[in-house]
């Protein structure tokens, strides 16, 4: 049980053993991905044929490493573009929603609060197809009525951005609102007494206080967008983001270059885990 109570030695050992097995289960898939990124073979399977960096840097002999795989690099760039817009929009709306939730009083606030959480319980696939259907309906209507063709309402990266922000905004809102809730309003009242304008207070006191949450939720939004698959799959056009390209290649039969790009992704997410969670252990629960 807990350390302050006496415990049977075998139970303690059993628990350590279980923890070890659990973490082996969690980390084994990632470890093999990393290891086989360096296997000198055309397929990411055993046997081990020696160490190579070909899957990162080769550009000859039937092997195209990560740095020369133009299709892969283009998809990473697409994902970056999408993730940039998603995090920008999510942070802006997340901040304004946080003020709505924590500061404003208006009719229908209860309904708004519930409705705002709804995107989290809708499966990503359904978010994707509903936005696809709605956007196509509008696009068709505009074309049929006035022959206006709006390219961004057809499957493609702009639609992917819309699909992803539809639920990532909620996550940003919850993170920023949680910090705003802990804010000591007497600081603002003091500034108001000392003659500061509301705008000056917002700019010099409230927003700087929210900055960690804003940066944090921006980073989370970027990662969530970069890694999103379900919603993206339904809305994607001819430009593939990274996850869609990886999915296509995995179905064709993986080549170790996928391991190489996966290893790069893992390093980025490990960095994010360290920066986002381990510096401030009390926020480890923010999901």
């Amino acid at each position: 049980m807990i350390p302050s109570l006496p415990d049977n030695r075998w139970l303690l050992r059993g628990r350590s053993l279980y923890l070890a097995a659990f973490f082996l289960f969690l980390l084994l898939p990632l470890s093999v991905v990393a290891v086989f990124a360096f296997n000198n073979s055309l397929f990411p399977t055993p046997p081990w044929k020696g160490f190579t960096l070909d899957w990162f840097v080769a550009n000859a002999g039937g092997r195209t490493g990560l740095l020369f795989d133009s299709e892969l690099l283009a998809s990473i760039w697409n994902s970056c573009k999408v993730a940039f817009w998603v995090s920008l929009i999510s942070v802006l709306l997340g901040t304004s929603n946080a003020f709505l939730l924590e500061r404003a009083e208006f009719r229908g606030k209860g309904l708004f609060t519930t409705l705002m959480l709804v995107p989290l319980v809708i499966p990503g696939v359904i978010l994707g197809i509903s936005i696809l259907a709605f956007a196509s309906q509008i696009a068709n209507f505009l074309y049929d009525s006035w022959e206006i063709e709006l390219e961004w309402l057809r499957p493609g990266l702009p639609l992917v951005v819309m699909g992803q922000v539809s639920y990532i905004i909620t996550i940003a809102t919850l993170t920023i609102a949680a910090r705003l809730k802990r804010f000591d309003t007497s600081l603002e009242e003091a500034a108001l007494n000392l003659g500061a304008s509301r705008w000056a207070i917002l700019r010099t006191i409230t927003l700087p206080y929210l900055k960690p949450a804003i940066i944090g939720s921006g980073a989370v939004a970027f990662l969530l967008s970069f890694e999103n698959f379900n919603t993206t799959l339904m809305l994607v056009g001819s430009d593939n983001p990274l996850t869609i390209l990886m999915y296509g290649r995995m179905r064709e039969g993986a080549s170790p270059v996928l391991n190489a790009v996966s290893l790069a992704l893992m390093l980025v997410s490990a960095l994010a885990v360290v920066l986002l969670y381990l510096r401030k252990p009390q926020q480890a629960g923010d999901n």
Binding site: L19, F23, L26, L27, L28, P29, L30, S31, V32, V33, F36, P44, T45, L223, F226, E227, F229, T243, M246, Y247, M250, A254, L258, N259, S262, L265, M266, S269, A270, A272, V273, V274, Y277, L278, P281, A284
Partner: peptide, 24 residues
Amino acid sequence: MLMAGILLPFWASELVRMLGWLIL
């Protein structure tokens, strides 16, 4: 360290995890 151990696999993309299971 335990927290990092459970967070790391989930911040790596779902595609990465599935690639791992495929290889295994």
